[in-house]
Amino acid sequence: MSIENSIKEIEMMEEGFLLPVYMEYKAPNVNFKEMLRYSGLPIKAAGDAARAYANGEDFPEKALVEETLKLIDKELQFKVGFIIGRLKWDEEGYPILPFKQHSESLKSNLEKCGTVILMASTIGAGIDKLIRRYERTNPALGMFMQGLGAERVESLTDTFNKEVHEAAAKMGYKDHARFSPGFGDVPISVQKEFLDSLDAGRRMGILLNESYLMSPSKSVTAIIGLERI
């Protein structure tokens, strides 16, 4: 709903960005295949194990999966923040965004888009505490926590992305594939300006270290272009 409203609002503006909107989600369903894949299983093995789990059958990592789910229950938050703005282009044909870049990848990703969304999602710092703990005392379990954390934030991001897709379609837009800093020729150093534009430090607790890595570690930033159809 708030995404649709934001699109309506931005349509009334010639240029600039709206202020950030923050949302909390319920836990998305767990994608076990993805979780197992992020936990170090090859794709096929992950698929087999996920199927076994769904059918209530036994498989070697089952105890680990269950223990992981039990331990992280109540430790997670599901937060998404985004800003939406009108996309302008500079004289050389690069998109003008809240973070400075001269990126060919973004130029082509955002081609024909008149509107963009910058989003950040996080599942909070609780899981990092658990990962730190179990990495030291039970590495296999630590690995699975990493895996589940990665799956959780991906699923959260997908949930948001799906809402964008639906709102965009309804309003007569096509959403382009989401694009994260660090992809293609966009350096991760843009994260600073990216997160600042969302006031993500203060409002979502997402901060950067000197190497531009986010904390909480299970956080995602991405840009989604909207093309009028």
């Binding site: 498989f59 070697p60 990592e61 089952k62 105890a63 680990l64 269950e66 223990e67 039990k70 005392t137 039970n138 296999a140 379990l141």
Partner: peptide, 12 residues
């Protein structure tokens, strides 16, 4: 302590 993970067994 950590009993859950230990109980798994790898086998295959």
């Amino acid at each position: 302590a950590n009993a859950g993970a230990g109980a798994g067994g790898t086998g295959a």
